[in-house]
């Protein structure tokens, strides 16, 4: 395995450390389960670093890894006859580059947690039911005393509020 570059040469360990979180988040966004994403992250790095990889800078390395991750994901989905949750698989890695590039992933999650803490009780409860407990919409409606359509609207509104909150914090952070 050769890792060469004209510029500063990071070690293999540094490359993994620098990119593994982004690759994992990308796979999770594509629809992987957490354990599956972890396995695929490992496979992606082994595949890329074992091959004729040349370090050409951070953005190129990130793009290369995402593309390899996408291909691995596609193979997994096809093998397991599962429908992917994202669309436009051709360019989803490019879309992710734009999304991830707008804010560091760790910072986004940190801001989200801070924003979630400011939400009203019912909104936080809805998020818990949806994401932590993976409750069905029907059961969520019963738990929250709402109709199913209302649950959908509530979740959409909460997500929109969280995005705005994160973007505000981004603005404050940049200043």
């Amino acid at each position: 395995m050769n890792v060469t570059t004209r510029h500063k040469t990071p070690t293999i360990e540094q490359i993994i450390q620098a990119h593994q979180r982004d690759v994992w988040r990308f796979l999770m966004a594509l629809g992987c389960e957490a354990a599956e994403a972890e396995d695929l992250v490992q496979e992606v790095f082994v595949e890329v670093l074992r091959g004729k990889f040349e370090y050409r800078g951070e953005p190129e390395t990130a793009a290369w890894l995402r593309r390899a991750a996408k291909h691995r994901f596609i193979s997994t989905v096809r093998r397991r006859r599962r429908a992917p949750v994202v669309r436009n698989l051709d360019d989803v890695d490019v879309e992710w580059a734009e999304f991830a590039g707008s804010l560091d992933g760790d910072l986004r999650v940190e801001f989200l947690r801070a924003c979630i803490a400011t939400l009203p009780d019912r909104s936080r409860r809805a998020l818990e039911l949806r994401y932590r407990l993976e409750t069905s919409r029907e059961d969520m409606a019963a738990a929250l005393g709402m109709k199913e359509a209302g649950v959908k609207t509530l979740l959409e509104r909460v997500r929109a509020v969280l995005r705005e909150c994160v973007q505000r914090r981004m603005g404050d952070h940049d200043q």
Binding site: A29, V85, E95, W96, V109, R113, Y131, R159
Partner: peptide, 16 residues
């Protein structure tokens, strides 16, 4: 960005 909602969904899930 076609999948932006999906990306945010994943980020919220990670946070929660």
């Amino acid at each position: 960005m076609i999948n932006e909602d999906r990306f945010w969904d994943a980020a919220v899930s990670e946070a929660v």
